[in-house]
Computed example of a mutant assay.
Amino acid sequence: MPKSGVNAVVAVFAIFIYPAAIYGDGETLLESLLRPNPICAPVLATAAKHEVQILYTQIDRDAANRPHFTRHEYRVNPEDYFYPASTIKLAGALLALEKLNQLGIVGVDRHTPVRIDSTFSGQTAVREDPSAPDGLPTIAHYIRKLFAVSDNDAYNRLYEFVGQQWMNEGLWEKGYRDVRLTHRLAIARSPEENRHTNPLAFYRGDQVLYQQPMLVNPHTWRAPAPIPKGEGHIQDGELVAAPKDFAGSNYMSVEVLQDLLVAVFFPEELPAERRFDLRPDDYRFLYRAISMLPRECPHPQYDPEKYYDSYVKFFLFGDGKAPMP
Rank of each mutant, 00 (worst) to 15 (best):
A132F: 12
P133W: 03
P133K: 06
D134S: 15
D134L: 14
G135Y: 08
G135W: 08
P137T: 02
T138G: 11
A140G: 13
A140R: 11
H141W: 06
I143C: 09
L146F: 06
L146S: 09
F147Y: 14
F147S: 12
A148I: 09
V149P: 12
V149G: 14
S150C: 12
N152R: 04
Y155D: 10
N156Q: 09
N156Y: 03
N156M: 11
N156T: 07
R157E: 13
L158G: 05
Y159R: 03
E160T: 10
F161T: 00
F161D: 00
V162M: 06
V162E: 01
G163F: 14
G163P: 02
G163L: 09
G163C: 05
Q164F: 05
Q164A: 03
Q164V: 07
M167K: 05
N168A: 03
E169P: 00
E169N: 08
G170Q: 10
L171S: 01
L171A: 01
L171Q: 01
W172E: 02
K174A: 01
G175R: 13
V179S: 09
V179T: 09
T182I: 08
T182Q: 05
L185K: 07
I187S: 08
S190T: 14
P191R: 13
P191M: 05
P191F: 02
E192F: 09
N194G: 00
R195A: 04
R195Y: 04
H196E: 04
T197W: 12
T197Y: 13
N198E: 10
P199V: 14
P199Q: 09
A201N: 01
F202R: 08
Y203G: 04
Y203D: 03
Y203P: 04
R204Q: 14
Q207E: 13
Q207M: 09
V208D: 06
V208W: 03
Y210P: 01
Q211C: 02
Q211W: 11
Q212G: 00
L215I: 10
L215N: 03
V216D: 00
V216N: 06
N217Q: 06
N217L: 08
N217E: 01
P218G: 05
T220C: 01
T220D: 01
T220F: 04
W221M: 07
W221Y: 03
W221E: 05
W221K: 10
W221L: 14
A223Y: 10
A223F: 11
